[in-house]
Amino acid sequence: MTDNKPLLEIQGIGKAFGGVQALEDVEFHLEKASINGLIGPNGAGKTTLFNVITGIFPPDSGQIRFAGKSIQALEVHERVRTGIARTFQNVELFESMSVLENILVGMYTRTRSGMIESILRLAHTRREEKQARDRAMELLEFVGLQDYAHQKSSDLPFGWQRLVELARALAAEPRLLLLDEPAAGLNISETNQLGDLILEICSRGITILLVEHDMSLTMSISDQIVVLDQGKKIAEGPPRDIQANEAVVEAYLGKGKN
């Protein structure tokens, strides 16, 4: 079995935009049910790497393997089906829909009824719809927003929208969850709540890859940290080692300081 194999293997990924090398020979892997921080200064290529993993654009070189299989040929929505879900840096909720409906869209890959079933509304379609709604409410309870299920998603405060997006990503029942700066725009208590949620999600067996500028959050919850700088991986290891790593300090503070 593939039991002790890593869940996600990034192998020699390179990506250039015009003349800019956004990613160069990036290589690391993620263990199952672990929290992994992906850090680096602005423009290090973190979001680019997210987009390569989720299939928004293909890498120029290298390979990505998920649960032992190459996912190179899969399109964005097919990767969600195999178990990779994500959130966005600037929160991309479906604004015309209610909070609950947003979560229900998130369950798209885990439900089946097609157009004809939805017109006929037979017993099994209604059953599936009911189960989906129950599950969506559970997820809203998990992030503490069950009382706002029927509000329009764009009416919620920004911090809560982030939580809705998190719940929507969880609705896809992912094995790997990519979080793009989930704490940006949150206050301290909200950030702490988010940290607890991420730990809770991980304890349910979901692997997490986290891009985050809030170092205290990243360092406190991550098992493993990968550091990118100018498209290259410059360090990898447990938080304590990273904090002491000279190359990392240099990347953040610039050479020649102190």
Binding site: I56, S96, Y108, M115, E117, S118
Partner: peptide, 26 residues
Amino acid sequence: RIIDSRVGRALRSIHDGEKAAAAVGV
């Protein structure tokens, strides 16, 4: 009926943001 179903919600999600819709698996 279509609008209030799984497919209908997915359709509306395309309207709100095609990129985000694909990213949640539509």
